[in-house]
Nucleic acid binder design. Structure first.
Lengths: 134, 134
DNA sequence: TTAAAAGAAGACTTAATTGGTCTTTTAGGG
DNA sequence: CCCTAAAAGACCAATTAAGTCTTCTTTTAA
């Protein structure tokens, strides 16, 4: 339970590697994929998601590649994980509206809320800077 | 991410219902399934898993059914969840031996360990007694 | 204007989830 | 001793999700 998918694992590996590179120079996807041992085609989609929400900035064409969208101390592990895995929701209960049709009886509800909070807090306290050992 | 599967949801619903019933009388699977609105065939498998690890005790034949394997204050939500969803492991890293072949570089490892600990602690602190409102 | 690179869409494969069915075992009651 | 109620167990099937690869488009520096 609670296992990260490959996608999430790859996402973390990839962006942590990017964070470990000089901040001012673009990094090829092919380089990242090779360095962290992830299928490049898969990593491409992951970085597209990152790009859409500004976690990374992309440059196309010759000399293109990726750089971080913000400095590595301003990007949290929570953002990275949620970018590709979706929001952290231990149970349909905690999503709110109508999802928990048994809400009256659902005594488990508050427990999941607490789990959600704790995990989010913890992941939110970790930045790429720390993870990349800079 | 971190979402419980149906199986986990059903498992909780089912055993919480059982905990809400008189402790000294066996309860039919068909009754539980109907009460918590879960396919009986699916719930059967879940309760078989419960039975194997002693979370519930089963009686076959006429007048058979299920009762809790221990009193409801001695069964935690963690046990229930792990019984059907497997151990709480946010990332292959924390499983130990060889799973994290990149362990040297894996700075994320300790974070997942912390997540694992926190979630396990929290779920371990909740008993069926509380959940069943007794 | 061409080659390098990311963006986008989708096809395909494999694995997990969510059930169902049918047979077997166990136990109680007439 | 048979019949019936109930869980156990072994399969099986549909659906969904995960993971991977392919192909084509768009952008842009040289």
């Amino acid at each position: 339970m609670m296992e990260l998918t490959r996608k999430g694992e790859y996402a973390i590996r990839g962006i942590v590697y990017l964070a470990s590179r000089p901040a001012d120079q673009v990094c090829l996807l092919s380089e990242i994929a090779k360095a962290v041992d992830v299928p490049q085609t898969f990593l491409a989609k992951i970085f597209q998601q990152f790009s859409k929400i500004g976690l990374v900035r992309s440059y196309r064409g010759t000399g293109g590649g990726f750089i971080l969208g913000r400095t590595s101390d301003k990007i949290t592990l929570l953002e990275v994980v949620e970018a590709v895995e979706g929001p952290i929701i231990p149970n349909r209960c905690v999503t709110g509206a109508g999802e928990c049709d048994r809400s009256n009886a659902c005594t488990v509800h508050p427990v999941w809320l607490k789990v959600q909070d704790q995990v989010r807090d913890l992941l939110n306290g970790i930045t790429l800077k720390e993870l990349s050992g800079q």
